[in-house]
Computed example of a mutant assay.
Amino acid sequence: MSTDRDASARDASAHDRAAAGSFRVGTSGWRYRSWRGDFYPTGLVQRAELTYLAERMPTVELNGSFYSLQRPQSYLRWRAAVPDDFVFAVKGSRYISHMLRLRDARAALANFFSSGLLALGPTLGPILWQLPERQRFEPDVLASFLDVLPRTTHEALALAREHDERMTGRTWLEDDVDRPLRYAIEPRSESFADPAARRLLDEHGVALTVADTAGRWPQFEPGTAAFVYVRLHGAAELYASGYTAEELALWAHRCRHWARTGGADERDVFVYFDNDARGYAPHDALALTRLLREAL
């Protein structure tokens, strides 16, 4: 890694985290071997990696929830490792998005919400549904799925109590303050360019994810949801290439534009770097944060 990128990790501070205002920039996941001895100092124990990251950026995307249902103890441990103002974006279960393909999802959603998400409390941020490329826009299917999504944590708790017997003994069925829930969908089929798809998402206040995927999948513009969700998987090589200074400046410009197009209030903009294979993600996240801070 270059000297400039090494310095970006060393120079990050709590001021960097707070100064971004309505912008929250982080990474997709945090546990990567290639980050050790680079973004993470040599000798940093693995259990301290999330805390180290959270001292330098204000958000991270939880990936494990996509592959399998996590346990409440894990969510509690993650929450305890970060500051109170930190935000976890949570990837929705691939069983729902890839196996059920959003159909008849109520029972699976009950299990998902009972698995411990609510234990994150105020650190629970947007919930992302990443769709497979084969998942085409089907108006009735998408509408039915969006209708069943709980809109607040109390609604999520009520749904979670419908969990099936497989979740017995591994649920979290508590919630203190009723908080709104926010959702983003990342489609990978060109069929979602249909204006009807955007209208449906806008009607439900669900963000259409802006994804940079080295040209592999379509890149959509965000809709009118109250926040913007961006995933940067790599401009030149999927999951692997770093972003140039010029590319980061362009993304900073776009983020500032999207924040200002939210009507009377500025929209929150969440950005997650998923170009983690060679360790670029955390350095690019810190560099973009600095660009956004400098524009304030």
Results as ranks from 00 to 15, higher is better:
Glu174Ile: 13
Gln219His: 12
Thr224Leu: 13
Leu118His: 06
Gly169His: 00
Leu173Pro: 06
Ser241Thr: 00
Arg106Phe: 10
Arg198Leu: 10
Ala211Ser: 11
Gly125Asp: 07
Glu237Ser: 10
His163Gly: 05
Ala240Tyr: 02
Leu232Thr: 01
Glu138Thr: 15
Ala226Thr: 14
Ser144Asp: 15
Glu203Ile: 10
His204Pro: 06
Glu133Asp: 14
Arg199Gln: 12
Ala110Phe: 00
Val177Thr: 11
Leu146Phe: 05
Gly125Thr: 01
Ala193Phe: 12
Leu118Glu: 08
Gly234Cys: 02
Trp129Asp: 08
Ala214Asn: 03
Ala226Met: 09
Pro222Ala: 03
Asp140Thr: 14
Phe220Arg: 09
Asn111Thr: 07
Ala143Ser: 13
Glu237Gln: 09
Leu109Phe: 05
Pro139Ala: 07
Arg216Lys: 13
Ala107Leu: 14
Arg161Asn: 08
Glu174Arg: 14
Gly234Leu: 01
Thr171Phe: 04
Tyr243Asp: 00
Ala156Gln: 09
Ser115Arg: 07
Glu174Cys: 14
Asp176Phe: 15
Thr213Asp: 01
Asp175Ser: 15
Leu201Trp: 03
Phe137Pro: 12
Asp178Thr: 13
Arg198Gly: 13
Asp175Arg: 13
Glu190Cys: 08
Arg136Asn: 11
Leu118Trp: 04
Asp140Phe: 11
Phe137Asp: 10
Ala110Trp: 01
Leu232Ser: 00
Ala110Asn: 02
Thr213Gly: 00
Ala193Leu: 13
Arg231Leu: 00
Leu181Lys: 05
Pro139Cys: 04
Arg188Ala: 03
Arg198Met: 14
Ala156Arg: 07
